Simulated assay, not measured.
Amino acid sequence: MAAAGGGGVRGCPALPLANGRSIPVLGLGTSHQGGYSHDAVVHALQKCGIRHIDTAKRYGCESLLQKAIKESSVKREDLWITTKLWHSDYGYENTKKACLESCERLGVEYLDLYLIHWPDAHVLGKSNREVRAETWRAMEELYDKGLCRSIGVSNFLISHLEQLKEDCMITPHVNQVEYHPFQRPQELVDYCRTRDIVFEGYCPLAKGEALTHPTIIQLAKKYGRTPAQICIRWSIQNGIVTIPKSTKAERIQENFKVFDFTIAEDDIEILNGMHDGRHVSWDPSLIV
């Protein structure tokens, strides 16, 4: 892992993308349904040195983030901003329009990373594959124009990525998927690595389920850390770009204090062995 430059977090390493840019390995996630706090984002940027922010049109907080970023006084070039395209905007022209609208809400001239949020297109009379291909062609154009510095997908499985490979020109730079000790899709991680797709994990704490697991509590005691820090550090040591969500300043502070310790290899293996296939978020396996 390289040290983060522009778009990095103080003391936070970055992973190189296939296009030569580097994505900070730790970011702050946002969400809908009470998943946004202005004060927490400002605190994250000003006090924790966080520079990687992950959001989506669906979360409804792009405009709120613009205010928090302005208030933080962090320079745009020092930030890594990811947002996502929701399926109601899939299709060639819709995608380009939606990207510009997201940029406007965020108050930015470009996105560091733009993701197709979900593989199911919900378009009558067209297959998911057709709509994904048409949408990705628009993403490629946005990338060529520099409006999106990197482009990727979210919740895509090997079958979805294989179709995209056949239908399009540019390989996604990132695939963002649920990743925590109970959901460790190693075959998908390995596939992405063979194709130079950086794997990004959301729900690293399994929506809190991991924090009460006896094994994780035991390891937290062993390392003098919190269960959340164990989960986040484990994810990062597995080479995953990790984006925990929190609306509490003290939790964000805690989640980002993970670069001053290392989990031993045998303990990593214990955590790796906890995979039981459960999802705490969406399961894309039924989407063709």
Rank of each mutant, 00 (worst) to 15 (best):
E140R: 09
E93M: 12
S72H: 05
K126Q: 10
Y59T: 08
L188K: 02
F261H: 11
S235P: 11
G8W: 09
D54T: 04
E71G: 01
Y92M: 14
C12G: 15
L45I: 07
A264F: 05
D144M: 07
V153A: 14
V9R: 01
G146Q: 14
E134P: 04
K126R: 13
I158R: 10
K57S: 08
D89Q: 15
W86A: 14
H180L: 08
V174A: 01
Q183N: 06
E130Q: 12
W136S: 05
G60Y: 04
T212K: 15
A3K: 06
L79V: 11
D54N: 10
P172S: 04
E250N: 06
H52T: 00
S73T: 14
Q163L: 04
A138M: 13
G34A: 04
L85R: 08
I216R: 09
T247H: 06
N255Y: 02
H117K: 07
G239L: 09
E200G: 00
L211I: 11
K248Q: 15
A4Y: 09
P172R: 07
K257Y: 03
D144H: 06
S235D: 11
K57D: 04
V123M: 14
D167V: 00
L124A: 15
A138Y: 09
T226H: 00
E166K: 12
I23F: 00
E178S: 07
F182H: 05
K257L: 12
L113V: 04
T82M: 10
I53S: 05
Y143E: 07
K96Q: 15
N272A: 03
E265L: 04
T226F: 00
A4R: 05
A68D: 12
M274P: 02
D78F: 08
Q33L: 08
G60F: 03
T95E: 10
V42Q: 04
E178W: 06
G277F: 10
H122L: 10
M139H: 03
A56H: 01
Q46G: 07
Q46R: 15
I252W: 06
W118H: 10
G8P: 11
A206S: 14
N155L: 13
D276M: 06
I53C: 06
D190G: 00
K145Q: 15
D39W: 02
T55K: 02
N255D: 14
D260W: 01
E250T: 05
G91Y: 05
L142M: 09
C103E: 13
S154N: 10
A206W: 07
I268F: 01
R129D: 10
C148E: 09
R137C: 12
L157Q: 04
P284D: 15
P214C: 13
F259L: 10
F261W: 12
H275L: 02
Y114E: 04
V198L: 12
G6R: 09
I230W: 02
S73H: 11
E71T: 07
N128Q: 12
I53M: 07
V280W: 05
W86E: 12
I170N: 01
T226Y: 00
